[in-house]
Design a protein around this nucleic acid. Sequence first.
DNA 1: TCTGGGGTCCTAGGACCC
DNA 2: TCTGGGGTCCTAGGACCC
Length: 393
Amino acid sequence: MKRIIFHVDVNNAFLSWTAVYLLKNGYDKDIREVPSVIAGDEKSRHGIVLAKSPLAKKYGIVSAETLYSARRKCKNLEVFPPQYDFYMEMSNLFYNYLKDYTPLIEKASIDECFLDLTNTKYLYDDILFLAYKIKNEIKEKFGFTVNIGIANNKLCAKMASDFTKPDKVHTLFMEEVKDKMYPLPVSDLLFVGKNTTELLKKININTIGDLANANELTLKKYFKNRSRDLINAANGIDDSPVISDPFINKCISISRTLVEDTNNEKTLKRILLDMSDIVGLRARKKNLFASTIAITFKTSSFKSYSHQEKLINSTNNTMEIYKKVLSLYENIDKNEKIRNIGIRLDNLKNIKKEQVSLFESNKANDNLQEVIDKINSKYDNSIIMPAIFYEKK
DNA sequence: TCTGGGGTCCTAGGACCC
DNA sequence: TCTGGGGTCCTAGGACCC
């Protein structure tokens, strides 16, 4: 049976949401109507474009480019800082509104959801009418616009919602793939990024249609096992389900770009401890336990490295994470200055894997952690941490 | 004042086992 | 007297997405 899938995507999410916030708070201008971007603070080296208005786009400004370069393209560019807390609020409003239409809803990211309406569509006599109703209601209720893609699977729904923006509904049913998707440049296809586009160009594949009809053996030379997936994607084939189960992270990570490059051990260890506590707390809140811990870093010359290690007992305990992080830190080249440093908890499961040890028990650690978390949640900002970690260099 | 941050998935290559 | 072969697990690195 053919499925009916909606992909609902907030137009220029960060920029729209900041526009909503500003208008609500008496700002007299809609920043969606001028050349504007949302970008981080350059002084703390976060100066890249996170979202752009349609007019900023006309100047050739793209996401993830440096603010410096964006300003050079457009002299009167208006720049606003991101407001992550407000974005989370809007994202939840959006999701809670949509989930009234079907229990089969998947939150794909902060600003997009998939809805499987296959079994609920009989409730709505006209699926297109329903999409317009959802789109218009979101605009009226919340003040931002969305695009909705309607298709028989997630891939095509997502492609469709990307067609023309903003505030639009598009369909891309299986029988429309040839007409609507084949003529597009292959770089428009999901999972085809910059590098893949370059490689495809070499073998004269320029449109999605070219890829759809490509010879798998030819592709294999460049893309190995990925070849079949690429051809399937180009043909609009995808049978991945809409997953509404509470989301279980595969990994939780955190990283920070430092105010200035450093190889000062004390500074780096202090930051690693801080971050160990943050990721640990996030894992504990979701009741997830990591069996792999990694540290990641970027050097002054922008080269990335990582070191990871599997644990015998999985954990989400701050002290245990930090202990492992420190031992991983010992492996890194202490001469190189570090620009960005991070921690990743990987192979997360919602049960604790524990090998029974004759010699020690982690029970005490876990109990202590629970007490610390309780205290910290009561007194917002105070971070309680065993003193030994502060006194040890 | 060049170049963020949080994710997922895949692959190569080494270690180790039988 | 000159180096197998299959399987699994683990780490490092890279591509891609929003």
